[in-house]
Design a protein around this nucleic acid. Structure first.
Lengths: 216, 216
DNA sequence: TAGATTGTTAATCGATTAACAATC
DNA sequence: TAGATTGTTAATCGATTAACAATC
């Protein structure tokens, strides 16, 4: 089943889909029934042209002279993103960040289900984290296979990240979301998203400097 | 003092700077002395052309027939990013994510200094978090002014995010790094970076679906 | 019907890649 | 010097914006 009318969807468009979904969700909450591309685009700070071009990758969702039915478009975008599916996840690395993500409520709400948390530190293994007991990383490979895990979240120190990724790939994982500050290497059929938090602070630093705030 | 040769640097280039810095840092660690644009670009999975174009925004750092001196280029990029500066930060929202970020060691290493953590929950106020005692959000505005805070990190629920941002702006903050799953609005002179973690999972979902993994 | 707004084609803008003269 | 590699200009590619016929 293909959502796309033809060809591949540019990454730059894919990245905007969650934003559309968020703004439409807010309109749904406010019980707004219809919206024009112009109005929605203004809210989002993009051009109406871009919005219509983006939607055009996936089909026709509007009605001339009327605009879009908010609820329908919201549902459509959700379907395009794939939110009707459920994905099983594991977190490897039960440090501060791993624990924070394990407790993040917005994930399960959207069908991203945390099935296990792993660490190498004996002091952490066995501890309870919400519904999940922290397990020994030795059991990771088997767990991924048995529990049909689709997404692996890496929150270990950068020295261990590639090794963890290799185990995940070997076990047949489909996607990796890496928070370690290093670019891990995986085969091209694995979906990989890097979340380099420290990089974002550097972008902030550069932009501050550019604005002339170098001295405080 | 301007780093840029002329005009504005495209955001797409700015976002690549931390990546250059990371890879050069690894070469420094491995005591590599020189590197050509081709070699570095191959490591990073980009084209040598792009690398040279990017550097061209900031000056001339190489030597024909030789390439780049790794240590020098590493230092230069650090300077361009602004890493010789120190920035004072606060975190508002001492939940799981706020606490995880407060304990993240890679920030202070680069001159991003956490000066205070705030929350509205009386049960959390007064608790110690590493070097920081959690303070009442009522004191936030004054604290930002007195302690010369440049960067505000928002890790509160989405309902409270805009309000916290408003306080920060009123107090004269220069940059905001927002983790709440909502686009906050700030005046154009404020540097704003949104970190929508749930959005990233949606991108993963779309890409998995695109690859034909919709059913597990 | 008249007005509004879409879907889509064409024009423009910006970013990436290719190519090569300059030069270490 | 000959070979390697930069800095930079020109060519290409892709994404955004503008424009408008189709139509609700």
């Amino acid at each position: 089943m293909r959502d796309t009318k033809e060809g591949r969807v540019p990454m730059v468009v894919i990245k905007r889909l969650p934003k559309y979904y968020r703004y439409l969700g807010e309109l749904v909450e406010h019980k707004v029934e219809r919206v024009s591309s112009q109005t929605l685009a203004d809210m989002m700070g993009i051009s109406a042209s871009q919005l219509r071009q983006d939607l055009n990758h996936f089909g026709e969702f509007g009605q001339q002279g009327y605009g879009y039915r908010v609820e329908d478009l919201y549902q459509e975008i959700g379907r395009i993103i794939g939110l009707e599916n459920e994905y099983n996840m594991v977190i490897v690395g039960a440090g501060n960040l791993g624990q924070a993500l394990a407790n993040y409520p917005n994930f399960s709400k959207r069908g991203f289900l945390l099935k296990g948390v792993f660490d190498i530190n004996p002091k952490l293994i066995g501890l309870k984290l919400r519904d999940n007991e922290i397990m020994d990383i030795d059991h990771l490979e088997q767990f991924i296979q048995k529990e049909n895990i689709a997404i692996g979240i890496i929150t270990v120190p950068k020295e261990a990240a590639q090794e963890v990724a290799d185990i995940m790939v070997r076990a047949g994982i489909k996607a990796i979301w890496n928070f370690a500050p290093v670019d891990i290497k995986v085969p091209p059929e694995i979906v990989l998203e890097n979340e380099h938090l420290a990089d974002r602070l550097m972008v902030i630093s550069f932009r501050l400097k550019e604005l002339g705030f170098e001295e405080d």
